[in-house]
């Protein structure tokens, strides 16, 4: 089976054994139905065991699954009349980010997201979903446009990170990301972000200053990839699994750290097993989010975003230890 993941192997093996037995009973004269039943019960238990105790590293694998639904997959399912807008009006059109206008349940919105490719050819065109500065500048242009026409903004986050390259540095990768953080802070319309795959560092955050941030259950959001962290911390990228566990990069971790609002539950084994069903889960959360945020005034929205980010971080004062005021 293409794209099977390491931790799922016991389930897949058992499942194929059951179907083998089924085929066998069809042709042979033996009745094995009770055995099949027993195995099916075991499969159910196994699935429960594995999918409910899914480890951080397993989630990383699901988030990176080649057939994991992308921004455009969800746009097609969630919105009507999507019209894609290209270009930063300055240098180029970066296909690692897509954006445009559409209707969500009748409400005009602007949708922006990182876009990976589905195959090698598309991945080269879209630079594996790793944007250049012009991608972020296009995103900002569309956000400003949304603000002008008072449309809520929905961002889908799905990138390994901003592209680390020569051209990107020449054109100001840092400035482009920084400018987005700066400008998104003051947008007078609701901004809802959904992490659908990997949320890789600054490249993800540049679409991520939202009033609400939601994460799919098996997505990750982190300051650096587990491989990168392992090579910095232990000088060994091979210890990525360990890094994934210690860095708190999964949706439940971020929820606990108070960074995200909702964990959007996924189908057993990951969103790629049923895109339609996954889209309805996202739709419900988006709907609630927007309903809540549309009640806020422009000023309240900006303050809401300010308060959200102000509250993130943990610290203490020495004076608390020595008891002075």
């Amino acid at each position: 089976m293409v794209g099977e993941l390491e931790f799922e192997r016991p389930i897949i093996e058992l499942r194929s054994k059951i179907s083998e037995l089924r085929d066998f009973t069809k042709t042979a004269d033996v009745d094995l139905s009770s055995e099949i039943e027993k195995l099916e019960a075991r499969l159910e238990k196994l699935e429960k065991d594995i999918y409910e105790n899914i480890q951080p590293w397993d989630r990383v694998q699901i988030a990176r699954h080649p057939s994991r639904p992308t921004t455009l997959d969800y746009i097609g399912k969630l919105f009507d009349g999507f019209f894609e807008c290209h270009g930063d009006r300055t240098f180029a059109d970066d296909e690692a980010i897509v954006g445009g206008i559409a209707k969500f349940k009748g409400l005009p919105v602007t949708v922006i997201g990182h876009q990976r490719g589905k195959d090698t050819k598309e991945n080269i065109r879209r630079n594996f979903g790793m944007p250049h500065p012009e991608g972020y500048r296009k995103a900002l242009r569309l956000m400003k446009q949304a603000e002008k026409f008072r449309r809520p903004i929905i961002c889908f986050i799905d990138t390994k990170g901003a592209y680390p390259g020569k051209a990107a540095e020449e054109r100001g990768q840092s400035e482009a990301i920084a400018k987005n953080l700066f400008e998104m802070a003051s947008l007078k319309v609701p901004v809802v972000c959904v992490v659908i795959g990997e949320g890789g560092s600054g490249g993800a955050l540049a679409l991520g200053i939202g009033n609400h941030i939601h994460m799919l259950e098996n997505s990750t959001y982190s300051v650096i990839s587990p491989e990168g962290a392992a090579s910095i911390l232990w000088k060994d990228a091979g210890q990525a699994k360990k890094a994934a566990e210690s860095m708190k990069i999964t949706a439940p971790d971020l929820k606990e750290l108070g960074i995200i609002e909702e964990i959007i539950s996924e189908i057993k084994g990951g969103a790629h097993k049923d895109i339609d069903k996954q889209a309805t889960e996202i739709e419900a959360v988006l709907h609630e989010s927007l309903k809540e945020l549309l009640r806020l005034s422009e000023e309240q929205l900006v303050n809401h975003r300010y308060d959200k980010y102000k509250a993130i971080g943990q610290y203490s004062f020495l004076r608390e230890f020595i008891g002075v005021k």
Binding site: G81, F83, E84, C85, H86, G87, D88, R89, T90, F91, A92, D93, I101, A102, K103, G106, L107, P108, E134, K138, F149
Partner: peptide, 30 residues
């Protein structure tokens, strides 16, 4: 388009339909 100056290149035969869609998204009130 490749150099970021255009939102899209639209074939004349699709133009009216595409613009109508954009106009409908820009109608006030959902």
């Amino acid at each position: 388009l490749k150099h970021g100056q255009l939102d899209a290149v639209i074939n004349r035969s699709d133009l009216k339909e595409q613009i109508t869609n954009i106009l409908s998204i820009h109608q006030p009130g959902g």
